[in-house]
Design a binder for these strands. Structure first.
Lengths: 335, 335
DNA sequence: CGGTAGCAGGAAAGCGCTTACCTAAGGCAA
DNA sequence: TTGCCTTAGGTAAGCGCTTTCCTGCTACCG
């Protein structure tokens, strides 16, 4: 690897001069030297060593993103928003897939910390409470103590800025929609019980149920399409009275559709997240839209723009919206 | 930020000893000192500065991934494979979204180079030929000249290892399937003409067409769902004789389905890539399966395991497979 | 013509680590 | 007792950069 010293030697200048020219520092330099140095850079295909630069400059440039799984469309959408903002402000984004393993989360936080990132965005529901969650909180605090910034998406961390999707409100919207259509027995395909996302969406649904004087039939699944399919199949078999299904995300809703196709029973289905696929399945899916890209953008903005010191953490709530499509209909007009 | 020197001071040892203990070097150290140092690490919440480590050790640990857009399911799937392998061998993966802009690709290659990554995987079709492509080739070669490894996916780079999806074969499979079903007038919704992926898949389709003595009606689009929808709508309107559509990826095939729904004309459709969504649309999509995750895994393996020196670049071809579903049927039994 | 700016460029001190090499002390055989 | 290992730990030289401070020079003023 060519080093700055190589370039300087070749151009017949000191490393100081070479560095200044390459970085376009304000110090004046004669055009002649500039040309010689730039020529040397080109000839040697010199690329500065980023680690040495970071070390010498001691500025934090990159930002880290902790995400459960980028290939999950939910996170893919959020990640796109995060990246847009980060890239726009000229920062390198390091994306870390935690695969939902708390141990890996911890590992990655340290790794990002070690890499001197300016900020870390943690996306994705946390667990309601657990040792790992505790530990994560602690590491996040430690990172912030060294001047790093943290923003979380859809997860509460007492000390950090947060962007929260209106999960409870969304759940309420979904439930109200179904009850408004006259459904009395609603099956809920929920995510893992320990996740805050599940808890919040479910809470909204419950609120709707009690305000309409109805009850829910909840089964827990895992937020995947296949999980949704099996859970729905089981629900259909065990409770014939159910006339509508509320799935706590679109993937499971799509699974529910598949289960109903094989069972030959077609009930109203409402999903959650309004992912792109929602409009392309048949029937197209009524869903609760969460502006995921925006969620990511806001979070990155919070992470990159430090708040005035000694103020409380900022919390932004982005609201949910009901998107009506073909998969829900009045209970009085069954199909 | 606590530094190693802080830890050493606090534990009353030299930085050398502290470093050795923290890194578990083979040098023997008394248990007493070890305990003191580890205690200091915990108290100070010391996290080593990765940049300083990289600089001092001069070893390359991370790997970089250049990908058009992780939120595109096609690349999401590939990325998942890449990450699986990289993480399994204990490496940090830096994912860079190029958003299909050649300029950004160049920028990122240099950035990864500067960060001393051990290897770079470039995923995603290149352009048939262009200045930017030329330039990219050059940078890649420069990177390899400094000891870095490069592997490409679905793109030819004379000097690097490559994993290639069998695009031509897949195109042939798709074409043969449709002609076998008796279709004589096949409309092709292609991607941008300048992309090698488009060219290869199209070539396979053409080969099938000529071996069956048929011709194709090709329109170019952009590999997005919406692009596919408008292109299909236009094709339907302009050429009423078409009885089947071959879309060069599933996203556009889904768009084609949507266009046909609005037009009220239902033709056989075959997609490409067999993305998860294919089985959930109605009718479920016949498609050419490309094992995308595997594509990513193989590429990362190539990137991480250097070939014996002075051998030709390794090229692996992963084959395509026809997945029959409901969206294609014999021309003699129209719906 | 001396004195002082102003300018172009270099010398060198770090940034936070790792590690080759050195030292001091103890143990043991001759 | 001497000599030589071994052991436990420290010293200090970098890794490749940036940046402060310093050195000559030329130019200009009185």
């Amino acid at each position: 690897m060519a080093t700055l010293a190589d370039v300087a030697r070749r151009a017949g200048v000191s490393t100081a001069t070479a560095s200044r020219i390459i970085n376009g520092s304000p110090k004046p330099v004669t055009d002649e030297l500039r040309a010689r140095v730039l020529a040397a850079v080109a000839e040697l295909r010199y690329v500065p060593n980023a680690h040495a630069q970071m070390l010498a400059r001691n500025n934090r440039n990159a930002v880290g993103v902790l995400v459960h799984d980028v290939s999950d469309p939910y996170f893919a959408e959020i990640t796109r928003g995060l990246q847009r903002v980060a890239t726009a402000s000229g920062r390198l984004t390091i994306i870390c897939n935690t695969f939902r393993e708390p141990a890996r989360e911890l590992e990655y936080i340290d790794l990002l910390h070690a890499h001197q990132v300016a900020a870390i965005v943690v996306a994705g529901s946390g667990y309601l409470s657990s040792d790992a969650e505790q530990e994560l909180d602690e590491r996040m605090t430690a990172f912030e103590a060294t001047g790093g910034r943290i923003a979380v998406i859809g997860r509460h961390h007492h000390a950090s800025d947060a962007v929260l999707p209106a999960n409870e409100e969304g759940g309420f919207l979904a439930g109200s929609h179904l009850f408004e259509l006259g459904h009395t027995s609603v099956g809920v395909i929920a995510g893992p019980a320990a996740l805050t996302t599940t808890a919040d969406r479910l809470a909204g649904l419950q609120r709707a149920a009690s305000s309409y004087g109805r009850t829910l039939h909840v089964v827990h699944s895992d937020f995947t399409r296949d999980g949704g399919e099996t859970a729905t199949a089981a629900l259909l078999a065990s409770d014939p009275s159910v006339t509508a299904i509320a799935a706590l995300n679109d993937s499971m809703a799509v699974g529910a559709l598949a289960a109903m196709r094989t069972a030959g029973r077609f009930l109203s289905v409402i999903g959650f997240d309004d992912m792109p696929i929602a409009r392309d399945v048949t029937p197209s899916l009524t869903s609760i839209r969460l502006p995921l890209t925006e969620l990511g953008e806001r979070a990155m903005e919070l992470a990159l723009n430090p708040p005035p010191p000694d103020t409380a953490p900022r919390v932004e709530i982005v609201s949910a919206e009901l998107i009506r499509r073909e998969s829900t209909w009045p209970v009085s007009q069954p199909r």
